[in-house]
Design a protein around this nucleic acid. Structure first.
Length: 539
RNA sequence: GCCCCCAUCGUCUAGCGGCCUAGGAUAUCUGGUUCUCAGCCAGAUGACAGGGGUUCGAGUCCCCUUGGGGGUACCA
């Protein structure tokens, strides 16, 4: 059976690159009728953030990437948090030590750094010099008791290493490229390499799909597998997703954009911004010097305050910006993979059905938000209405929209219907937010092009009069009334609809005029037309 | 520095020696539809990084150059 796994380290929100890796792992497992495991690699005490695991799981679920084994769902290889598996690692660590395949080291970081520096000065690559004699277990115990930093290193074979990669074919590394590496840190935790290899074996992982940044790690992992008597799983090192600015798509990007904006706008008050972000002035200062990377909510709050739209990087950012998980998943799947039939817009089930590891591309791809938008639009059209409504409500809730309180499900569904063709929920809001506005502000451009035009005021007066007499307030009735006016005054729809649109929304963008008026309600419509007339009279 | 990976329209990609005067999608531009914005319909612009080979024949295979990405940790 095919078993894949996604093994993030909980350092923050799940970003799209990670989501894509998880997606491909899941797609492979589902396509083959296998299992998909989620494992949390939290062996680095310094980097982990307490809420990250929870958030990562939430984001995966939002995307519809559900794991068969892992945190919260359990499974035969429990637990799935590496920090809770230390006794397991210790056992295998001991085995390696006893068999003489790994050894204790007492080096300080400074000593290692010195050796590294020397190697660099002599223009050769640094390999840890294996000692001729190794400390005994007893000596290691004593060293630990004496407060020395004790690590364990794996003995790396001095041979050529060959990785057979599903995507890249045979990759050969010449002998002498790999030195003995640390498998147990001085805090007693295993390093990534060790924990990962042990867990993949114990969890029965058959296919490891990961970013190409891990390709160089594979020889280490294979050496470990060999030493421990484990099977070597199949490897597939995927291309990575790069950012528009070049380089790996990184979580730090949003901070970068925000920082630049603040620097470019000297009038912004640092102390105030720090307060808005809920940061100390000191932390804010560090952030501005690029020495601190605050988490999403803080960056969000500050950007929101100064009206800056940050590029979406984390899955949660896309959710907040009004994208559909169906579209995200579909789009992510097309980054480095293509369907044999050339189809691009696909449902989750189609992706599972058509997925094939052999069709993964070797080339890095750029995350193009414009294309995502296009996918999103397609999915907004095809996703079942109740699913779409659910997503819309989640979006509104996340953005604390007053719309949510003013409309029931039927009203919200209607709003989505009249905004058909929108690229995302932000578009829907751009068209419909006027409904809940207390004070209407008139867009100067709209005023100039429509309200200030000859005859606009008179038309609005006529419209108001006609509307007042309407017994029913429905789209066909309103539409009929407007058509009637057009006929009577021998003008096109535009001459009537546009002044109404600007009068009720303050802008030149809204849903179809009849639908817009129904949603606004008769009373408000008349009040706003009245207000617009007053606005024109005042000049 | 050393090691590894990669290279087709702006972007995502199809292509696995002749079906390629290189196909699709998206973006861009033009026209049409419409009460606005979207959308929809029709059309247009647009790529095999460069240089050597191999071959009757190369986008497809090999080498070099260039460019991009990654690694070089007691991070994962």
């Amino acid at each position: 059976m095919t078993v894949t796994r996604f093994a993030p380290s909980p350092t923050g929100y799940l970003h799209v690159g990670g989501a894509r890796t998880a997606l491909f792992c899941m797609l492979l497992a589902r396509h083959e009728g296998g299992k998909f495991i989620l494992r949390i690699e939290d062996t680095d005490q310094k980097r982990n953030t307490p809420t990250a695991t929870e958030q990562v799981m939430k984001d995966l679920r939002w995307l519809g990437i559900q794991w068969d084994e892992g945190p919260e769902v359990g499974g035969p290889a429990e637990p799935y948090m590496q920090s809770q598996r230390r006794d397991i690692y210790d056992k295998y660590m001991q085995q390696l030590l006893e068999e003489g395949k790994a050894y204790y080291c007492f080096d300080t970081p400074e000593q290692i750094q010195e050796l590294r520096q020397k190697a660099q000065d002599e223009k050769r690559s640094f390999l840890y010099p294996r000692p001729t004699e190794f400390p005994t277990a007893a000596q290691a115990e004593k060293a630990k008791a004496d407060g020395l930093a004790v690590t364990v290193r794996m003995m790396m074979p001095e041979t050529e290493m060959v990785v057979n990669d599903i995507i890249r074919g045979q990759v050969t590394f010449p002998a002498g490229e790999f030195g003995d590496f640390v498998i147990q840190k001085s805090d007693g935790f295993p390093t990534y390499h060790f924990a990962c290899v042990v867990d993949d074996e114990l969890m029965g992982v058959t296919h490891i799909m990961r970013g190409q940044e891990h390709l160089m790690n594979t020889p280490y992992h294979m050496a470990l597998q060999e030493a421990l008597g484990f099977k070597t799983p199949k490897y597939a090192h995927m291309s990575v997703t790069v950012s528009e600015g070049g380089g790996k798509l990184s979580k730090r990007e949003r901070g970068k954009v925000l920082r630049k904006f603040i620097k470019d706008n000297a009038e912004l008050d640092y102390i105030e911004l720090a307060g808005i972000g809920g940061m100390s002035e000191e932390d804010f200062g560090l952030f501005m010097k690029n020495k601190l990377a605050p988490d999403s909510p803080q960056i969000d709050a500050i950007a929101n305050h100064i009206g800056l739209h940050l590029p979406e990087i984390n899955v949660i950012d896309f959710k907040k910006s009004g994208y559909l998980p169906e579209a995200m998943v579909n789009f992510l799947a097309t980054l480095g993979w293509s369907s044999p039939d050339g189809k691009e817009v696909m449902s989750y089930d189609e992706l599972v059905e058509k997925f094939d590891v052999k069709r993964l591309s070797k080339t890095n791809s750029l995350f193009d938000r414009k294309k995502l938008s296009s996918f999103n639009m397609e999915h907004m059209k095809t996703v079942p209405a109740d699913t779409l409504l659910g997503h819309f409500k989640a979006y509104l809730e996340m953005n604390d929209s007053p719309i949510l309180k003013r409309f029931d499900d039927a009203g919200l569904a209607e709003m989505l219907r009249v905004c058909e063709g929108a690229r995302n929920f932000e578009d829907v809001m751009a068209k419909c937010a006027f409904i809940v506005k207390e004070e209407l502000e008139f867009d100067p451009k709209a005023v100039k092009k429509v309200l200030a035009k000859e005859g606009a005021k008179d038309m609005l007066l006529l419209v108001a009069k006609a509307f007042e007499g309407l017994g029913e307030w429905t789209e066909p009735v309103i539409h009929g009334a407007i058509e009637q006016l057009c006929k009577e005054h021998e003008v096109g729809m535009g001459k009537v609809a546009q002044p109404i649109r600007v009068a009720i929304s303050g802008s030149m963008v809204s849903p179809g005029i009849g639908d817009a008026l129904v949603m606004l309600g008769k009373e408000k419509t008349l009040a706003r037309i009245n207000g617009a007339v007053g606005f024109i009279e005042r000049g």
